[in-house]
């Protein structure tokens, strides 16, 4: 019969429409603006409305999610910051778009290079968010951020992230990537234990 195919198609859209209301009634108030509601809308059995109402609701980001890089520093007990970066330059060497500039600090007296960056700059108008810097950093010093709310009115200077802006505490890193943080801490503890054991043997 002519027109049957179209009717069948319209049936599918109608089902989608009805689903929305059925789901709303079934789930009640918990469907919107709650974490469970958002998670439910992300599963493979989701039906009806699929929308995440950003900014009131937010899509939970996967741990591996990467946006622009940032530098990690460890907080000392009295609040002093120890930057993990040793200015080894690996991140700037692997960077495919060459958007990382590192100026290695020098000892003011002997002018020998120090293992810390005097300046660290990332031009995020060049950065392609590939994550190579974080992947190959041997000191877990540079990581990919989860913060994507970076829209600005002017870019020329703002979008060059310098050291001060890039530095974020290890606690922040732990909050966005708990699993990798725990793994790294564990590995570090093991290394430290091994060192201590070796010292004990001597």
């Amino acid at each position: 019969m002519k027109g049957f195919g179209i009717l069948k198609g319209l049936g599918v859209t109608l089902k989608h429409l009805v689903d929305t209301y059925v789901e709303d009634i079934k789930a009640g108030r918990d469907r919107y603006y709650t974490e469970d509601g958002v998670r439910q809308r992300m599963t493979s059995d989701t039906k009806g409305i699929f929308t995440i109402n950003y900014p009131e609701e937010r899509l939970p980001l996967a741990e591996a999610f990467r946006y622009v890089p940032f530098l990690v520093y460890d907080e000392g007990e009295d609040g002093e910051r120890s930057i993990r970066c040793t200015a080894c330059g690996i991140c700037s060497k692997v960077c495919p778009s060459q958007c990382i500039w590192i100026e290695r600090a020098e000892d003011p007296e002997t002018s020998k290079p120090l293992k810390t960056p005097a300046e660290f700059a990332i031009d995020i108008d060049l950065c392609m968010n590939c994550g190579f810097c974080a992947e190959y950093c041997p000191f877990d010093a540079i990581k990919m951020d989860h913060d994507f709310e970076l829209a600005v009115y002017d870019r020329i200077d703002v979008n060059i992230h310098r050291k001060e802006r890039l530095l974020k505490p290890a606690s922040y890193y732990a909050s966005i990537r708990p699993e990798s943080y725990a793994l790294e801490q564990k590995a570090k503890a093991e290394v430290a234990a091994r060192k201590a054991a070796r010292r004990g043997n001597r």
Binding site: Y67, V68, I124, D125, C127, M128, N129, F148, L150, A151, V152, Y153, D154, R155, N159
Partner: peptide
């Protein structure tokens, strides 16, 4: 307005 990211989500 500039939105950084490659691509922005």
């Amino acid at each position: 307005v500039y939105v950084p990211g490659c691509p922005p989500t």
